[in-house]
């Protein structure tokens, strides 16, 4: 049928179904429940794939149990979803592997991350687990900023980095725990070297 011959029908605009906003329910490991919009979920590659695979309808969301996120607690998940809701619809940055990586922390994110370092640690862990690229970037940037204005010695204390001696001691302890004879062998080897032998065999 040509376009000219197509029947003309009056359309009742109210009858056109308006696409309802889809929300999903998630539950943290301490049984706190969150309702998160479909668009916000798209910031998380992990959750986005999960809900796509589940193929839930609006009814399913209400009738079925909330999707459990077993290794993230409620306090952390609240921050994650607040971030996702605020940044919903934004393009997800593609990591081109460039070094150095330029990241700026927007005002909202700075306020959201005005938290203690324990919670910041959990937030980074969660951003990595849920694969939320930009949240991971800004939270890592906050950690990188802790180095500003510090001397190397101060930096070691801030990041809890072991010294060479501590690394060496940890390595020895690990070796001994694995093989109690390792230390004896090492000592025997050192003794032979002192006696002038350059080969253990």
């Amino acid at each position: 049928m040509s376009v000219e011959n197509a029947p003309v029908v009056d359309v009742d605009e109210a009858a056109i179904p308006v696409e309802k906003k889809m929300y999903y329910r998630f539950e943290s490991n301490d049984k706190k429940e969150f309702r998160v919009s479909e668009l916000a979920i798209q910031q998380s590659e992990t959750l986005n794939r999960l809900v796509e695979a589940m193929g839930y309808t609006s009814e399913d969301v209400e009738n079925k149990p909330a999707i459990a996120i077993e290794n993230i607690d409620g306090k952390t998940l609240k921050l994650v979803f607040q971030w996702c809701e605020h940044h919903k619809g934004e393009a997800i940055p593609v990591d081109d592997g460039s070094v150095p990586k330029i990241v700026e922390i927007p005002e909202f994110d700075a306020k959201l991350m005005d938290i203690d370092n324990g919670l910041l640690f959990k937030l980074i862990w969660a951003a990595d687990y849920l694969n939320i690229v930009q949240l991971l970037n800004v939270s890592c940037k906050k950690v990188a900023n802790m180095a500003q204005g510090k001397t190397p010695a101060q930096l070691r204390r801030v990041y809890l980095l072991p010294s060479d001696e501590e690394d060496e001691a940890a390595k020895r302890a690990a070796q001994e725990a694995q093989d109690p004879r390792a230390r004896e062998v090492e000592e025997e080897f050192e003794e032979r070297k002192r006696q002038g032998g350059n080969s253990f065999f």
Partner: peptide, 17 residues
């Protein structure tokens, strides 16, 4: 902040920034 206790890709990301 325990940098080395972060998952390896995260601590590498901190270094990249």
């Amino acid at each position: 902040f325990p940098l080395t206790r972060l998952p390896s890709p995260c601590s590498q990301n901190v270094l990249r920034i």
